[in-house]
């Protein structure tokens, strides 16, 4: 049973279908159309730095909103009876199984001009453009990824022993104190994995901004989609920068998480 051999197909698979493609991206990013070494692709990629910054900004705001909305929900869920917990988990998971594009399309339907919300608002004499701006993009992101924040928070918080919370109360902590000194420190692993699961896809997603945003709201994923088909080199450079940026973010986040966990 102490065999290592069964992992060989996987190792080969990962080398061929994960490592080789990444090396190819690196190669294309560092060459020009003729295949000779060049940093031209990176210079062109730098031209999209405003889109990069916007993507990070949108991802940051969306993640923050998700966290703020999901935290109380995760806590409420974790303090219920077992059967209620299971039921609520199911309720939260069902929309995740809906196709990603259909969920975005639902918001296009809702927010469009003369759509249900627009019509309702105009009854009250409010006329605003609901779709085609950054707010709509962020709303779409929050909607897409909220379950990915709620579930890890809930999972971690459901492991917090209720007696600990009661003990803190008995020892004189008020509700805020209990939250700050007991629940929050113990929920940090959930916060970290929630942020990971929301930030990475929001920063790199494409289509959400195309569907809900205006022409000035496109994100870095959209740029990759747009230029990769015609210019492999610049597309590769942008993809590479995106991947490295996200890996650095994850390393920092996990480092931060470890420190916090030790301090607590």
């Amino acid at each position: 049973m102490r065999l290592r051999r069964p992992s060989i197909p996987y190792i080969i698979w990962m080398v061929v279908f994960t490592l080789v493609p990444i090396v190819l991206i690196l190669f294309y990013a560092l060459t020009d159309r003729s295949g000779s070494f060049s940093v031209e692709a990176f210079t062109k990629a730098v031209g999209y730095s405003d889109v990069f910054l916007r993507s990070i900004w949108i991802a940051f705001i969306s993640t923050l909103i998700c966290l703020v909305i999901a935290y109380p929900m995760g806590y409420i869920m974790s303090r219920q009876k077992r059967s209620v917990q299971n039921f609520l988990t199911m309720i939260i998971m069902i929309p995740m199984w809906m196709n990603f594009l259909l969920r975005i399309y639902a918001w296009v339907t809702l927010l469009q001009n003369r759509g249900p919300i627009d019509t309702m608002l105009s009854i009250f004499g409010i006329h605003t453009q609901l779709i085609g701006n950054q707010g709509a993009v962020i709303l779409g992101m929050v909607y897409e990824y909220l379950p990915f924040m709620i579930l890890p928070l809930y999972t971690v918080m459901s492991k917090i022993d209720t007696r600990l919370i009661e003990a803190a109360g008995d020892l004189g902590a008020n509700k805020f104190g209990v939250m700050r000194k007991v629940v929050f420190p113990l929920s940090i692993p959930g916060i970290i994995s929630g942020i990971t699961m929301v930030f990475v896809p929001t920063a790199s997603t494409f289509l959400v901004a195309q569907y809900l945003g205006g022409t000035n709201d496109i994100m870095i994923g959209d740029v990759i989609d747009k230029i990769f088909w015609s210019d492999h080199n610049t597309g590769s450079a942008i993809a590479l920068i995106l991947m490295v940026a996200i890996l650095i973010f994850l390393v920092i986040l996990n480092f931060f998480g470890d420190e916090e966990a030790i301090a607590a």
């Binding site: 990962m14 279908f17 994960t18 080789v20 493609p21 990444i22 190819l24 991206i25 294309y28 990971t196 990475v200 896809p201 920063a203 790199s204 997603t205 494409f206 994923g221 990759i224 989609d225 990769f228 492999h232 597309g235 590769s236 993809a239 995106l242 991947m243 996200i246 890996l247 994850l250």
Partner: peptide
């Protein structure tokens, strides 16, 4: 872990290249 965490777009375009 890296293959799970790397963005879908990057996985997609890198495989397409190959």
């Amino acid at each position: 872990n890296i293959s799970i965490l790397s963005p879908d777009v990057v996985t997609g375009v890198s495989l397409m290249l190959m």
